[in-house]
Design a protein around this nucleic acid. Structure first.
Lengths: 346, 346
DNA sequence: CAAATAAATGCAAACGGTTGTCTAAAATGA
DNA sequence: TCATTTTAGACAACCGTTTGCATTTATTTG
């Protein structure tokens, strides 16, 4: 059996409470006693039992991370590692641990969140998405547990801490970027449209079109989820339109890669025939050929700030529920070009 | 305060122990009582306090994941999400939680492992790498905690459960694949050579060369870590060799992408001028242009099997320490071609 | 129908810490 | 020197479960 505080106490001829206070370096204990106890701890190889401490202190120093349903989707998307890196960095600074949900359906994830929260396994939660009809966030509100969401919540935004980009603005800027290059037929390709981030980007896209008095065509707005075969279909649909788009805004750079692949199969060259702006600026956009013009959403920072939010909130549950907007910046690479105006690429 | 077992007991007019037994659905409790107690639990919104249970049962149903030093490296590599997905899948099946290390130096990771293990926060551990002079594995052995490593341990392999590809073999096959295409000057580019996986692959590579009576040239063996600027340098070094390589085996497909980019800058075409085989077959190799011939290491399976190992080991600490080898398969795509023999590509 | 057996529940001691309160000893001051 | 304050540490209750054992209640059996 592992050595406990009592064993140490006995050997050091002090009471367990004294040992406990030595551990927390309480100033009620003399230096002399501390030294003695510490030495005994060392000798016996004592290490605190975390669970026992948690039980009384009611603080686990752990935050739970809730992924989108389908761990597989979430994990495939290079967004995930990057946001995790940010979360992880701040957690490490503050000596917090990270606990991950593992479920692969919306329901099983929800159950895991309940287990995390009610089972008091975590002090706070970060939700990595914002989605219509999501049950996790309402649940967290009801449980009154500190949490932050990455993405813009759909309601009660004043009660919720969130970290997000200004996706409307970012998408608007991307669209205008293309418009300024002379493009008039711009398509928007999202991934799962249930997520708020996609809605925002569609809004920004449409705003820009309207602002520049371009027609908003529903046919130009498409979606496909990573990993599905839909990428091909989407491209086909767009190319069979009478007025084919000459530029695309694609909501994730993995998806952009898929699209570029489909285009190249059809001898449509990027950026000569088609301009593309992707979102996220992950490693993929840097290394693709041609390297993509991409909106850097600063995913790492998103994660970092989110964990900062929750951890601060854990420290002071009554704190003002601020939200933070992480600026985006267009990384101009080689998938965008001036529209030459012949409009015929095949 | 949250509702406890005692509150439920009081309200249901039973003893706490009865409630506890209802929770575990013990057959010592009558159906009638169970129904009554369950209803009260429902009414009061009872949920078990996990930490209290852990304290007495000494089982956390959590496994800890140890990443390479530098979370950033680990997370950037698409290997990580994929292996995590596999781990996560099995953990979910068995109702285990996942706890992640967050440290970014070898030392801080080690400390976190100690905290996890001695603090009894995890029942078992998965180490995502095997590395020379690593202190984590020896520590885990000493602590006698169930663990598995992904990769081949450097010593005491009989005492350690591990899950790995046969990297020697895989690399040998890759090399022979290229040899059969007529290549004679084949370069091997690894990432961090401290990791056993790279050593194994180098060995396999050299074995194949020897088998086919090709010269083993140290100059052809290079390494660079993802994210560093070294990719460029490595390519330059190889190209400035008097006998330039005509094919490359690259130990991670992100790295292959970097190399391909550098080659294309120098107007060296893949596969016409240079054949490339990468390792891992992540999404990157599928979507790159041209799509890469890649060794599928079945990363997901690696993770899945590893968690299976630990979880079984947790169930029976005395079990036979088997190891599992996940087969690899060459995914033949478009970065490899027959060597034309003129040997001049620039 | 009483005795024996089986089934259902309660009691109380853990698990390994923390923490408020109390006491003895040391330090201070008059 | 003695009363008073301060300091260091001990005591014991508690955190929310689980679990071996004792006890009560129900059931079976001779």
């Amino acid at each position: 059996m592992a050595v406990t505080i009592k064993d140490v106490a006995k050997r050091a001829n002090v009471s367990p409470s004294t040992v406990s206070r030595v551990i927390t370096d309480s100033n009620k204990i003399s230096e002399k006693t501390k030294r003695k106890v510490r030495q005994v701890m060392e000798e016996m190889g004592y290490h605190i039992n975390f669970n026992a401490r948690v039980l009384v202190q009611k603080s686990t120093q752990t935050i739970g991370i809730v992924m989108k349903h389908s761990a597989s989707h979430s994990l495939h998307n290079p967004f995930f590692p990057e946001v995790l890196r940010g979360i992880s960095a701040f957690c490490h600074e503050k000596d917090y641990s990270i606990s991950l949900t593992t479920g692969n359906s919306e329901k099983s994830i929800f159950n895991e969140v309940v287990k995390m929260v009610q089972g008091r396994r975590v002090d706070g939660v970060i939700v990595l998405y914002s989605k219509k009809d999501d049950k996790v966030v309402p649940y967290l509100i009801k449980q009154n547990i500190p949490f932050a969401v990455i993405g813009k919540p759909l309601s009660e935004t004043n009660k919720i801490m969130y970290v997000d980009n200004d996706n409307v603005q970012a998408s608007k800027e991307a669209t205008e970027f293309l418009i300024k290059l002379g493009h008039q037929r711009i398509s928007f390709i999202g991934d799962d449209p249930e997520f708020q981030v996609i809605q925002d980007r569609i809004n920004g896209y449409q705003e820009a079109l309207k602002l520049h008095e371009l027609e908003v065509t529903e046919d130009y707005i498409k979606s496909f989820e990573y990993g599905t075969a839909n990428g091909k279909q989407v491209v086909e649909e767009l190319l069979s339109l009478p007025e084919k788009p000459t530029a695309m805004i694609i909501s994730a750079d993995v998806n952009a890669l898929v699209v570029m692949k489909e285009l190249s199969k059809r001898d449509i060259y990027v950026p000569k025939d088609m301009s593309i702006i992707s979102f996220n600026n992950t490693i993929i956009s840097q290394l693709s050929t041609p390297p993509m013009t991409s909106i850097d959403t600063q995913t790492y920072q998103l994660g970092y700030e989110a964990s900062k939010c929750v951890i601060e909130l854990i420290g002071d549950p009554e704190m003002f529920k601020r939200s933070v907007i992480i600026p985006t910046v267009i990384e101009n690479r080689e998938t965008t070009a001036i529209y030459k105006g012949n409009g015929k690429y095949n």
